[in-house]
C-alpha cells in the first residue's frame, strides 16, 4: 500500500533526527568541499541540495575496506570470527541514479551465493530516495532509462518542491515508516505526486546542459554482441592512465580483492577491498600469464561490462548515468561519448 504525503524541510530534519533514536542514519554531508554518505548524529548537518556525492552510496552496502573475519590461534587451533554487521539503518538522500545502481548491484551480491556482508546490510537498511533539484552537465540518467525523479529502488521517495518535499511510500516498509511517523507529514495524493514528478522531470530535463545526442542502447548492445575486436578500444585506451578513479566512483562497479594480514603468526584478519579491472595486475595469474595484458583489454572490459556483460548476466544495463566518471576522469574518457561513438561505428557497418 503506497502512501502519498507532504513534508516540510524542517519536519524532514526532525523526522530524520527521530529515526536516529533507534537506527543508524547514513546521509550526505559536505566535508571539505566534497559530499559523502556518512553516519550522521545531528540531522541538521544533512545536505539536501547536493548534486552528486563524491563516492556513491554503494559504499554503505559494500565498504571500500571490510573485514571478512578475524582469527587467532589458540591451543594450536584456529578461531575464526566474522565481524558483527550493522543493524537497523536509514540510508537517506539517495538520488535516482544511485537508487538504480543499488538495483544493479543486488543481483551481483544476491544470487546463487548470498554475500552475507552486503545482503545483511541491505536487508537492515531502509532507503530514502531524494529526487534531484537540478540536472548537472555530466548527468545522463535520463538517457539510460532513468530520470531525475524516478523512485525505483527507494523505500520512501522524496520529490523536492521548492523548499519542501512530496513523500511516497514506495515499498511496504517505507509506507510503514511514514505511517509510524505520520505527525511529521501532511496529506497529499497520488495525483499530486504524479503531476509534480512529471512536470518536475520535464522542467529538469529542459535545463539539462549536458552533451547532446540520443542514445540507442539496444543498438549499442547488439553491436557489441557481434563485435568484440574493434580498433575503437585500442584507440580509446591510448589515453587511459590505468588508474581506478572511474571504477571506484562508479556506483555499479563491484570488483574486490581479498587479502590476509597477520600481525603475528597467531592472529590476523582477512580483508576485502575494492579493486579495479583497470589495474594492470588485476587478472595477473600466479604463473605470470595475464588474460588482459594491455590497456586495450582492460578498457574494453570496463565498457563491455557496463553496456553488455551486466545486461547479459542480470538483465540490467550497467551504467546508470550518474556522471561521476565523466566528471573525474583525468583524460576525458566519457561513457556518453563512447555510446555515441559506438552508435556511429555500428551505423557504418
Amino acid at each position: 500500500m503506497a502512501v502519498y504525503k507532504k513534508i516540510t524541510k524542517d519536519n524532514l530534519v526532525q523526522f530524520l533526527q527521530e529515526l536516529t533514536k533507534d537506527r543508524i542514519l547514513i546521509a550526505p554531508v559536505r566535508e571539505h568541499e566534497l559530499v559523502s554518505f556518512s553516519p550522521v548524529a545531528d540531522a541538521g548537518k544533512v545536505d539536501f541540495t547536493f548534486q552528486n556525492s563524491f563516492v556513491p552510496p554503494k559504499s554503505w552496502f559494500f565498504p571500500q575496506t571490510e573485514q571478512i573475519f578475524s582469527f587467532r590461534i589458540e591451543d594450536g587451533k584456529y578461531e575464526l570470527s566474522a565481524p558483527s554487521l550493522p543493524g537497523g539503518t536509514v540510508l537517506f538522500g539517495v538520488h535516482p541514479c544511485d537508487l538504480k545502481s543499488i538495483l544493479a548491484l543486488d543481483p551481483v551480491f544476491d544470487g546463487k551465493f548470498d554475500d552475507n556482508y552486503y545482503c545483511t546490510r541491505r536487508k537492515n537498511t531502509i532507503i530514502i530516495g531524494l529526487g534531484c533539484q537540478s540536472v548537472g552537465r555530466n548527468c545522463f540518467c535520463f538517457k539510460v532509462g532513468g530520470g531525475p525523479l524516478e523512485s525505483n529502488g527507494a523505500d520512501i521517495f522524496l520529490t523536492p518542491t521548492g523548499g519542501d518535499f512530496l513523500a511516497e511510500g514506495v515499498t511496504n516498509q517505507g509506507t510503514d515508516l511514514i505511517n509510524k511517523h505520520s505527525r511529521f507529514f501532511s496529506d497529499s495524493s497520488a495525483e499530486q505526486v504524479d503531476k509534480e514528478k512529471r512536470e518536475g522531470t520535464d522542467r529538469l530535463l529542459k535545463q539539462s546542459t549536458g552533451l547532446k545526442g540520443d542514445f540507442n542502447l539496444p543498438k549499442v548492445k547488439a553491436f557489441l554482441d557481434a563485435n568484440y575486436e574493434i580498433p575503437y578500444w585500442e584507440d580509446l585506451s591510448y589515453r587511459c592512465l590505468g588508474c581506478g578513479i572511474c571504477t571506484y566512483l562508479c556506483p555499479t562497479c563491484h570488483c574486490f580483492d581479498i587479502n590476509d594480514y597477520a600481525r603475528s603468526g597467531l592472529e590476523g584478519e582477512r580483508i576485502r577491498c575494492w579493486d579495479s579491472c583497470q589495474f594492470k595486475d588485476f587478472t595477473l595469474m600466479a604463473g605470470g600469464h595475464n588474460p588482459r595484458p594491455s590497456k586495450k583489454e582492460r578498457v574494453r572490459n570496463r565498457f563491455m561490462h557496463k553496456f553488455k556483460y551486466h545486461e547479459d548476466r542480470y538483465n540490467i544495463f550497467g551504467c546508470v548515468g550518474c556522471g561521476r566518471c565523466v566528471q573525474k576522469c583525468p583524460v576525458n574518457i566519457d561513457p556518453r561519448k563512447i555510446i555515441l561513438d559506438l552508435q556511429e561505428v555500428a551505423g557504418n557497418d
Partner: peptide
C-alpha cells in the same frame, strides 16, 4: 578520504618503475 585509486601515481612522469611497491602482494 584518499581512494587509493593510484591516479597520482599513474599520471606521474616520475613514476617509471616497472613493478610498483604499491602493487606488490
Amino acid at each position: 578520504r584518499c581512494l587509493r585509486c593510484y591516479a597520482c601515481r599513474n599520471s606521474c612522469p616520475a613514476c617509471s618503475c616497472r613493478e610498483c611497491v604499491f602493487d606488490m602482494v
